[in-house]
Design a protein around this nucleic acid. Structure first.
Lengths: 231, 231
DNA sequence: TCAAGCGTTTGACATTAATCAATTGAAGCG
DNA sequence: CGCTTCAATTGATTAATGTCAAACGCTTGA
């Protein structure tokens, strides 16, 4: 792998604290690849050969059953995905495809597991990352089971607002994918946006404006135990 | 803690491979407590002081939002819960209550984190457990987003069938809790059982009989990437 | 510039699930 | 035993969500 990418990867929480020699060893077996838009990176059910790191672009994790597809998460730089499958040496539960032109680092799963055993700092980082992933999915489940589609959309917008600080949100993905992620149909997402207009939400293309955050929050009732992305 | 419980805990994957001295150190700070039925063990939002191990009985993990409650999982002996919160030293995302008279071991979170850093076998076990938990929740999400309530119930019955090997399933929990776990109302669960009768499912109290597994499978279309509890 | 293609929106309708109210049934207790 | 209590069931109704078809609008490319 070209050394130029090392710094990006090293900055990741997962690799930041590990021994330099171990990091170098990991990088030796790894490589970086550029993928065009809409390329299938992995398919659910396959066995895990590489830990993937998104260096640039973005990746959609999705799952299928009975000819339906649902979007599970979007991975943005710089972070990893399919860590759990790598650790357990088990089949992927989700498929992944690039949403746009992306640069992905591939680190052999075997090396990750081997160095885990010898590098305590790396082990702790992996545990932290996994715990974080776990908690994210639990929050997601709570969102799905406890909220209506309108409430899910409202809280999604507020989360984006909190992340960027701006009251104008750029969806940065197709509405159909957002709909799938939120567990609804594109038609219903369209109607849900309309349903939020009494609370000051206006739509123009992929730009969503929150007229008054307090009003939207009064409806959405965000909770730190569902919507706080940090903890 | 009375030594008599040590063996039960030691048998857990999480503790089986660690150094004896470290295990003893963990146990020194721990204690075992008996709880009656329907006792709140932890509340979501609290900070994590103890890793909990269910030695006997059973525990319901559930979450609330906006005056609604949903059951997230049932923990049966012998296994742990709230590992992720313990590791991250973060607030619980779920509440826990005993479903029946239960014996619970409480292991100080601080000790778990400390020994994690010094015992590689323990670290690997924790990572495995967390990865397992993560994958379980992901499967759960796929179940929720990709299936109708009737399909969720059918696949739940088939999973129980695979676990016990028997074609007569004892629900071993209130139907209302099963309904909550499956993401539906008790009324709808009742109707869903009726809806499965064309596929050979008969109900008498908490005993569910699968008349013909193949017929039910033809409807439920179970998938290893959702319903296999092992991988 | 126009046409094609595709994502989005809209409306009508079907299906699914939730709610409300009433009844049934089973377990616990005096 | 009979009463109380609460879960479970049933039916009627409403609400939420999905489906289908058509129209719209933006982007792309000849």
């Amino acid at each position: 792998m070209p050394e130029s990418h090392h710094a990006d990867i090293r900055r990741l929480d997962l690799f930041a604290e590990m021994e330099e020699s171990n990091f170098k060893a990991l990088m030796r077996g790894s490589y970086v690849q550029n993928f065009p838009q809409r390329i299938e990176l992995i398919m659910e059910g396959e066995t895990s050969d590489f830990l993937h790191v998104v260096l640039s672009g973005s990746v959609d994790l999705y799952s299928c059953w009975n000819n339906q597809e649902t979007s599970m998460a979007t991975i943005r730089p710089v972070s990893t995905f399919i860590l759990a499958a790598t650790i357990k040496d088990a089949p992927y539960l989700m498929s992944a495809r690039t949403l746009e032109k992306s640069r992905i680092a591939l680190i052999p799963s075997q090396d990750v597991r081997a160095i885990f055993d010898t590098d305590a700092a790396f082990a702790r980082a992996i545990v932290n990352e996994l715990a974080q992933c776990y908690r994210t999915v639990v929050k997601n489940t709570k969102d799905l089971k406890l909220r209506s589609s309108l409430e899910r959309l409202a809280n999604y917008l507020l989360r984006q607002h909190n992340k960027t600080g701006s009251s104008v949100i750029d969806l940065s993905m197709e509405k159909r994918r957002l709909a799938s992620f939120l567990g609804m149909t594109p038609e219903n997402l369209s109607r849900a946006f309309k349903g939020l207009s009494p609370f000051g939400v206006t739509v123009s293309g992929s730009q969503i404006k929150i007229g008054d955050v307090e009003t939207l929050e009064a409806f959405a009732k965000p909770s730190v135990l569902i919507d706080n992305m940090q903890s």
